[in-house]
């Protein structure tokens, strides 16, 4: 890998005081950004500069900064989580950019994900979908049986594990031209539907989760496949098909 160098960039960032305010794109110049830094470190650097200039720093979501929590959420140059595939925003590095580049940074755009401030959106719609059915009910009175005591075919276990890799970041919604949450919901439905423990409540689960998804105001999937491309965890469209199957089965019951 080539050695790190410093680049000068122009940032076009969505600024919005609060949920009610009307926001707009603001332009910032940022010099001497090391290509070895991460994208979020670059934003930290911008915020230091803004604080030194006695300006309001840019609010953005992040937590683990290692691609597992699903908090980071930026629409960078027209792509969810930036130009790389299979990575979250926190895993994006400045070596992907060149000296003199202009970089657009916007929040996830969805009616169901209202902007809280600047680049921070409220993704609690996902939590409510989960609460509607994204769980298995177990008796926790002390006599729980070991989950591994139930045999699961390897193929199903693998598919369930792949679905469970979804970190709930919302990039699928952000990138979808319809603002559809079906990749997320498909992953959550599949994760349980594939396992014996989840089959018990499968019918109600899919009906309830889809109902909640619709109520939150997410759009309808038209199978463009954009979500699958941009998902940092490589969640497959097969999960949407599985949800569609499960829902059809459940509706006919």
């Amino acid at each position: 890998m080539s050695a790190a160098k410093n680049i000068n960039i122009t940032l076009k960032i969505w600024r919005q005081k609060n949920a009610k305010a009307k926001g707009q794109i603001e332009t910032y110049k940022l010099n001497n950004v090391s290509t070895a830094s991460s994208f979020l470190e670059m934003l930290d650097q911008l915020n230091e500069q803004l604080i030194n200039e006695k300006k309001e720093p840019v609010a953005f979501d992040h937590d683990c900064r290692e691609g597992i929590c699903g908090m980071c959420s930026l629409y960078i140059n027209g792509r969810a989580h930036g130009p790389d595939t299979g990575t979250t925003t926190c895993q994006l590095h400045m070596r992907k950019f060149n000296d003199g580049d202009t970089i657009y940074i916007e929040p996830w755009r969805s009616k169901a994900f209202p902007v809280v401030k600047d680049l921070v959106v409220d993704r609690s719609a996902f939590d409510r979908i989960q609460q509607a059915g994204g769980f298995v009910s177990v008796n926790t009175s002390g006599r729980t049986i070991d989950a591994n005591a139930i045999p699961v075919p390897k193929h199903d276990a693998d598919r369930a594990f792949e679905a469970a890799a979804c970190i709930g970041c919302g990039a699928c919604v952000a990138t979808c031209k319809n603002g559809s949450a079906m990749l997320f919901v498909g992953a959550k439905v599949s994760q349980y539907a594939l396992l014996p423990q989840g089959k018990v409540e499968a019918t109600q689960r899919v009906l309830n989760m889809v109902r909640q998804m619709d109520e939150e105001g997410f759009g309808n999937c038209t199978n463009t496949g954009a979500c699958e491309v941009e998902c940092p965890k490589g969640i497959s469209l097969e999960n949407i098909a599985r949800m569609n199957r499960e829902y059809l089965k459940a509706s006919l019951k």
């Binding site: 629409y75 140059n77 027209g78 755009r109 559809s180 463009t224 954009a226 491309v229």
Partner: peptide, 17 residues
């Protein structure tokens, strides 16, 4: 309706037909 405010910069040709 699901996206009342659009993106200032969007690059959909990178991920869909």
């Amino acid at each position: 309706k699901a996206r009342p405010i659009g993106y200032a910069k969007n690059n959909p040709s990178k991920n869909s037909s």
